[in-house]
Simulated assay, not measured.
Amino acid sequence: MFDSRHIQTFAEVVRTGSYAATARDLGYTQPAISQQMKALERAAGTPLFVRAGRGLRLTDAGQVLARHATGILSTIATAHGQLKAITRLESGRVRVCAFPAANATLLPATVARVAASHPGIRVELLEEEPPDSLRALREGRCDLALAFSAGHGGDAAEADGDSDEGLVEMPLLDDPLMVLLPADHALAGSSRAELGELEQERWIAGCRHCRGHFVAACAEAGFAPDIAFATDDNLAVQELVAAGAGIALVPGMTLPLLRHTGLVARPLAPAVGRRVSAFVLEGHETAPVTALLLRTLSEAAADMERAASGFPRSEA
């Protein structure tokens, strides 16, 4: 295999026509140039120069290498420049796979911060619920996954029999579950709602993974919920609750998305919540673009938690 330094020196010898002139131009001794060319000839397996009077003449092999030398050096320079741009966060791409609530709340704030500070970085978003988002990470379809886990139903990575081996988790925020009620509901004026008080209600359930946590929480409260509707669409949940079709448990992080009038959100007593985390493959957390996104996600999550602490939960 050729040494790029030897290729660069070879190109200079071709340009100047002698080892002595190349040594002067590059600041080496003439024996050093000669040694480099001997090493290049050993790698090539054939002589590249022959003496022609006081100068040098390229052999047929030397002419072939000379034709490629400029392209080789140009490709190396381009690759070096692109690598420097990535390490300096001047360019790069990171693919994020997240669940819908995160794509609608946490990710926009994160992408905006990245675009403002590093406009050359491209963030691409995919949407999957856990554990499918973690499967996408393992399969190489994304570089970073956002997932949630809860006290009911186990860890997000283990929900379908997977383990978190080989993954690095960075917890971002604790996301409490809220009861979404019509404004005229009997518990709408309460500061919080006990799950056991809602045994007779009809429910609107969310995604399969969320529904498992919800059913487990109800079981701990001593009842099996009457699930009348199931939808992953946050807007549909709002419309159904407002229409009196049922009530729902919604993640606290989605409260800023409530747009329907006549809805209230109340925290549960005892509290039920989930942990939202970012996951990357082990060893990838130090990659410059990935590390940037992890830092920015952490900052955006902290801002979201601060905003949620003062969010008015009695109106939408």
Rank of each mutant, 00 (worst) to 15 (best):
L126G: 15
A307Q: 12
C218Y: 04
A69Y: 02
R202M: 06
T110F: 06
F229S: 03
R57C: 03
R67P: 02
M1L: 02
T290Y: 09
L107Y: 02
F148I: 03
L181R: 05
L257S: 03
A44Q: 08
S91H: 05
S133F: 00
L73Y: 09
A150V: 05
L167N: 07
V237P: 08
G246M: 13
V111S: 04
N103I: 00
V250R: 05
M178Q: 10
F2E: 09
Q36K: 15
A216G: 07
G71Q: 06
A147P: 08
R266A: 06
A101R: 01
Q8K: 15
A278K: 00
F2W: 10
L134V: 02
T78G: 03
P251I: 03
T105P: 03
L293K: 00
A21D: 15
G151L: 14
L263A: 05
A145P: 09
A217S: 14
Y28T: 14
E299C: 08
D3P: 10
V13W: 06
I76K: 04
P288R: 03
H6D: 15
L281W: 01
T9L: 15
L198V: 15
V14C: 15
V64T: 09
S74L: 06
E239N: 14
G62D: 02
Q82T: 08
P288H: 00
F99T: 01
G154L: 14
R274Y: 01
R95E: 12
I121H: 04
L146N: 01
R5Q: 13
T254C: 01
H118D: 06
G151V: 08
A188D: 10
A32C: 12
R51C: 05
E158Y: 03
G246P: 14
S191E: 15
G55A: 07
S4D: 05
L172Y: 03
P31D: 15
V50T: 07
A157I: 04
A156L: 15
A102I: 01
F2S: 11
E299D: 08
R202D: 12
R259W: 05
E129C: 01
I204T: 07
T105N: 11
A269E: 15
H209C: 00
V96W: 14
A77M: 06
G161D: 12
T286N: 05
P131V: 02
L177K: 07
F49Y: 15
V94M: 13
P100I: 02
D143H: 13
S314H: 11
D155P: 09
Q36S: 10
W203I: 05
H68C: 04
A20L: 12
P131E: 00
S314C: 11
A32M: 14
L198G: 10
A159I: 10
D132C: 01
L293T: 02
G189I: 04
A69L: 02
H6I: 00
E128A: 00
N103F: 01
G161H: 09
I33T: 12
L240R: 10
L255Y: 05
A221Q: 08
M304R: 08
A291I: 08
L281A: 06
H68S: 09
A157V: 08
H185N: 10
L126C: 05
V272M: 13
A11T: 05
G62L: 02
S163T: 12
V289F: 04
G151Q: 11
L107R: 00
P312N: 09
L292S: 08
D232T: 08
S133R: 02
A186R: 11
Q35P: 07
